[in-house]
């Protein structure tokens, strides 16, 4: 646990762009969407613990806004941190892509675009991944599947 509090301190000094807190598992950084790319680049180039392995990118629909969640691991020390950003525009959300820093993000961002309809600026190939082009965005909470009439009881 000491190690992790140290990491929070180090990160707060190095990353002045966002708020660094200790989550229930990993240190968390919350940044504004327009500072996302900058912060990701800074994390990737950290000196002793470069967070160079992007484990996962995902999004959560909170009805009023979207939350974009990145999990990074440092291949040096195997520490994990979480980077979050909040997208306030629920109707047409967009954010800068990090696929130029991590090629794996290209496909995970395509999946997020497919399932949530979040657009990524500067993405090299933003197409639907699973669904057809005119299908809705199924992981949004307001999505209604009109073809499949089976409804789960709550």
């Amino acid at each position: 646990m000491d190690n992790k509090t140290d990491l929070v301190e180090v990160l707060s000094k190095l990353i002045p762009l966002g708020k660094v807190t200790m989550g229930n598992q990993y240190p968390e950084i919350i940044v504004d969407p327009d500072k996302l790319h900058e912060t990701a680049l800074a994390l990737k180039n950290l000196k002793n613990t470069p967070f160079d392995f992007l484990i996962d990118v995902t999004a959560v629909d909170f009805v009023t806004h979207f939350l974009l969640v990145f999990h990074f691991e440092s291949t040096n020390t195997h520490e994990v941190i979480v980077l979050k950003t909040q997208l306030e525009d629920h109707d047409s959300p967009f954010v800068d892509s990090v696929s130029d820093l991590w090629p794996t993000a290209e496909f995970q961002e395509r999946e997020i675009f497919d399932l949530f309809g979040i657009r990524f600026n500067n993405h090299p190939d933003l197409r639907r991944l699973f669904m057809e082009d005119d299908y809705g965005y199924p992981l949004r909470k307001d999505f209604k599947d009109e073809i499949n009439i089976i409804e789960y009881p709550n």
């Binding site: 484990i55 996962d56 995902t58 959560v60 629909d61 999990h71 794996t104 496909f107 995970q108 999946e111 992981l139």
Partner: peptide, 12 residues
Amino acid sequence: PYRVRFRTPNFS
């Protein structure tokens, strides 16, 4: 759960 995400190895 409100949201579940599986980071699957084969995808990457």
